[in-house]
């Protein structure tokens, strides 16, 4: 079981709810993924089309909602969004996201740390989205983050875990759960992160824009489970030297002597 801030999660796949073609496809994909944690964003109500309510489609009590602070460009904006999210959700779970540059959507490490310090003081369960920087992960952990969420690649790029070298160090050092977030574009990427020892992965675009998001959600669920099982089982070491899988003794002699 994965435990974050005292809450247990059977599923190690977290789902983002953005970019689905319809609320019903989103709800079916979430069900197929068997996830228990879903992220949501906060936006101004479109007063010309006020009937567009995601929470109706989701069913409020079935999942842990992890509101994000997407759109925030600095700590101040993120803190404002966090308090709005708590008023809206009635819970303190928060994915802290501070992305000043819309082109890269890379997180601002300084503002993220400042916001984490303040939001922990304000009683939030803070899961900061961060670049895959092992030192920053320790700083966020020390500031009271409930988990850290290093990126595999920039948001929505489907590039996979390009940051594996640093993510491995983060996993090795962290005392809080590590959730690989962003960039995971295929079930194999998710399995790779889990094989490395990530505690969970967060996936959105790869599922929501797939040809069949519901089938893709099921594929990710299997991959996350396979990767986790492999990690727990203990992965073999990589080597440059070949090592025979078949026995090297008891080979046939004479004609097949070349086998010796």
């Amino acid at each position: 079981m994965l435990t974050i801030a005292g809450t247990e999660f059977r599923s190690r796949l977290f789902l983002g709810t953005g970019k689905f073609s319809s609320p019903s496809v989103m709800a079916e994909a979430i069900a197929a993924s068997d996830c228990q944690m879903v992220t949501v964003a906060l936006r101004r109500v479109n007063l010309d089309d006020p009937d567009d309510d995601i929470m109706k489609a989701l069913g409020l009590h079935d999942y842990t909602f992890l509101p994000n602070t997407s759109g925030a460009r600095d700590a101040k904006e993120a803190i404002r969004l966090a308090h709005l999210a708590r008023a809206a959700s009635g819970s303190s779970w928060l994915k802290l996201e501070v992305t000043p540059d819309p082109r890269t959507l890379l997180p601002d490490p300084v503002e993220t740390l400042l916001a984490t310090e303040q939001l922990v003081k304000d009683g939030f369960i803070v899961l900061p989205y961060m670049n895959a920087d092992p030192i920053l992960a320790l700083r966020l952990q020390d500031a009271g983050a409930a988990a850290v969420m290093p990126l595999g690649a920039p948001i929505g790029t489907n590039q996979g875990v390009l940051t594996d070298f640093q993510v491995e160090i983060i996993i090795e050092q962290a005392k809080v759960p590590v959730v690989v977030d962003a960039g995971i574009g295929a079930p194999s990427h998710a399995a790779y992160a889990m094989e490395m020892g990530a505690d969970a992965v967060l996936v959105n675009t790869a599922i929501s824009v797939a040809g069949d998001p519901i089938a893709m959600a099921a594929a990710f669920a299997k991959a996350v489970e396979a990767g986790r099982t492999a990690f727990v089982a203990g992965m073999g070491q990589k080597s440059k030297q070949a090592s025979a899988s078949s026995p090297e003794s008891g080979m046939l002699s004479s004609d097949l002597g070349f086998l010796n």
Partner: peptide, 10 residues
């Protein structure tokens, strides 16, 4: 007045 609600997001 700001009126805000949850929408899909990652």
């Amino acid at each position: 007045v700001e009126i805000i609600r949850f929408v899909g997001g990652g």
